[in-house]
Design a protein around this nucleic acid. Sequence first.
DNA 1: ACAATTAATTAACAAATGTTATTTCGTGGT
DNA 2: ACCACGAAATAACATTTGTTAATTAATTGT
Lengths: 194, 194
Amino acid sequence: MEKSFLEFFKKFSQLNLSDILEIYKISSIKSYKAGEKIAQEGDQFDFALGILKGVIRTYVIKSNGEERTVRIALEKDFTACANCLLNDGKSNEFLEAVEDCLVIQINTRKFKELTQQNIRLLRFWSDNIGQVLNETTNRILFFVVMTPEERYQALLDQNPEIILRVPQKYLASYIGITTVSLSRIRSRKANSNN
Amino acid sequence: MEKSFLEFFKKFSQLNLSDILEIYKISSIKSYKAGEKIAQEGDQFDFALGILKGVIRTYVIKSNGEERTVRIALEKDFTACANCLLNDGKSNEFLEAVEDCLVIQINTRKFKELTQQNIRLLRFWSDNIGQVLNETTNRILFFVVMTPEERYQALLDQNPEIILRVPQKYLASYIGITTVSLSRIRSRKANSNN
DNA sequence: ACAATTAATTAACAAATGTTATTTCGTGGT
DNA sequence: ACCACGAAATAACATTTGTTAATTAATTGT
């Protein structure tokens, strides 16, 4: 087993070594170049991606052809196509490497089978889903209680890593605005802070 | 066991009758009057609410005192204070009955203990958390890909029940806008559709 | 049924965003 | 080092939203 694999899973206290080995058997380590597409709308992409290195963004394409970034995942995060993971359906999202990426790619179909026998794996799943739900719930607050400008500031305060590593054209829709508006917000901030 | 309780849980195929009985033992059926507060910010509200009848909204109060509705739950939904449910922390939200409500109130602290012994209860938990995550993910799309007007229309198309039963003053922030703006959107729609 | 209170609509104006186009800046590739 | 391309910034204008206030409609309580 690769050292990086073990390292990644060591932090999950629900799992013992043999559990990690079970996961290892249904996983592979893959690398993606910056800009490379990992999954497309329409794919049956039955993988959860544990990010060892890099940034992955998830986006959708609107009927008019415009892209909207819906998730951004960094090192140590898990990410996946929501509809594949939760509904065993086809993806309605695209996954794309923003930087060169190294990821652990876990076959979720096989993983779900394993949870039938192994209660620790089920708990691992359950805890991680709960963790993601928690983050997602906070992201909704982000939209419901904040203005676009406040959302940018909150990202700057709470998650500067994302702003540093993700191009603005992707960040803008992640915040729920256009690139032009994001640029204006940044310029307003720059002028007021000196 | 109340008929309504059994009825509510019958739809969860992971559970057998004795599982439902286990849940029953750590639950109570409560009723709340329209407008009544169910939980407050700061509370340790360790309950999941299964709604038998009524509408429950979840809101937060911003530092300037303004309310923002973040969730709306109807019959057959589960709802809870996110931070209590997922992090065993104190609530940062308020829960309030919008209509007269009848709810199954499950002690989540005790429930989590039960999942240590009973794998079907763990799977029940896991599946429901996954279901909620799925809805929450869609709600983020709602904000990321749609304009306020489109969001109102989407709610009208996909969830008219909410619009019919929840006052506009609550709906507005649920959609991410002010009551005035919601009123204008409605009036624009009314004028264009005839 | 009535009064009193609250909700929803409308109006008027300020401020922010969206849109389209242009310019400037930065980056990657050769 | 240079060119070419894409990203970001800026500009100008239309549209929408936010804000505050006034009016109308609806609801609640007695």
